[in-house]
Design a protein around this nucleic acid. Structure first.
Lengths: 232, 232
DNA sequence: TCAAGCAAAATTGTCGACAGCCGACAATCA
DNA sequence: TGATTGTCGGCTGTCGACAATTTTGCTTGA
């Protein structure tokens, strides 16, 4: 009779333990409490949390495949270090994905569908920028881009993007202040909105390329200066 | 040949367990001995191999992040099923990566450096095609493309490609014979060689786009016909 | 003082065990 | 007969334990 037309109860999340541990570690990394190169000993984490090492290990593997951790044989996990060159490669990959994604969004006529969400997120970015919540602002920024990638309809794009995003968030969280003028990032997103409104695939591509290019130059440049500055 | 030059005494005896199990499972999947949807119970594998479940579990997680397996909560691992739409997304992602990769190879003047290897691999493809070793031929094909991606100098491209490649290999291994004329694939690669020789970035991009497009149409088309044919 | 060597501590890789969860089948009821 | 409920076997999630390896810190000798 009345099938699951409206799921009264959502399936509750199981496997919560390793998932929750992974989320915890992710938060610690993207917020900068765990810094690149830091050791993440599964036995220590397990002791602290009062659980066995197995779920911690699972969480570590999860974050390893997400690119936040690396593991060395018999040495355990370490927060992934990333240099400017690698970061540049990351942004180049991101560009490839997002450029095609936004083109697909336009091509398949999904612009109107996501526009309200995009505008709301820009609003959120402006608010959090004025309140100086940099890490949160970066999160919203990435959510904005994720929306576009998701709407592209290519699930593989989304998978790669999600992996990218966590790494980029972790890196940018290390930077105190990239953009001197608060709210600049938020307003830069309007260029993408405008391009989307034209409904022109190539313009959308170009807008995304420009947009990501700006961030790429800023973030990678900052990292490169950090490296040469801290070079011993 | 005598391979004594290689480290006969394995420096990688540790943690090799989960690695070796992962390799074993990978082989089983890409060779088609394990088919999409098949259950991969860690306890069964562990019993068969005479090891505990822990390393099997690790291997499963590894292959999960590589996209060859999926895991369901409390049910364990299953060989990933893939439909034509998803496969098409996969090829679109592959296109994005390889198009930029080959452009970078040209731009950074690495053509001469990899040309001998590429030619040798085409030779190998022709040989194995005539001997009807389809699975091996697909492997060499992917190696050819991997060379280009590796030479691009963008490590992130390579990571994504490696994940892609195992999935594509697993899918194509399911197809008895995509290309009716043996050796056609091999000769198609000469188009890429020619484009590389011109040293023109855009021509290289176009060649790769065409090349992947051909495979994409053939493989995805084949899958789609399988689906509609086997629709229940 | 410092380097080398060695032993203790810490940490990972692997194992077997146990409880809870899932799907399948049998039993019950309308 | 058809649908719901109880039961069972198998499997996963998690745990504590042990062996192998790495790291640490101390001792020793020059």
């Amino acid at each position: 009779m009345n099938r699951d037309a409206d799921p009264l109860f959502k399936p509750l999340a199981r496997d919560a333990l390793s998932q929750r541990i992974a989320q915890m570690l992710t938060d610690a990394i993207v917020s900068g409490r765990l810094k690149p190169g830091d050791r993440v000993a599964e036995s220590v984490i397990a002791r602290d949390l009062g659980v066995s090492r197995a779920p911690v290990r699972e969480a570590g593997r999860l974050l390893e495949s997400a690119g936040l951790l690396v593991s060395k044989a018999n040495r355990g996990f370490f927060v992934r270090t990333i240099d400017a060159t690698d970061l540049d490669s990351l942004y180049e990959l991101r560009l490839c994905i997002e450029r095609e994604a936004i083109a697909r969004v336009v091509r398949e006529g999904r612009v109107a569908q996501i526009m309200p969400v995009l505008l709301a997120q820009i609003e959120e970015m402006i608010t959090s920028a004025s309140e100086n919540q940099l890490i949160y602002q970066i999160g919203v920024d990435l959510q904005f881009h994720r929306c576009i990638v998701e709407a592209s309809g290519n699930g593989r794009f989304l998978t790669v993007f999600d992996n990218l995003a966590s790494e980029i968030q972790a890196c940018t969280a290390l930077i105190e202040r990239v953009f001197d003028e608060p709210g600049l990032v938020a307003r830069n997103h309007f260029l993408i909105i405008e391009a989307l409104e034209t409904g022109n695939e190539d313009r959308a591509r170009a807008a995304m390329e420009y947009h990501i290019g700006v961030a790429r130059k800023a973030v990678v440049g900052h990292f490169r200066s950090l490296e040469t500055g801290a070079a011993q």
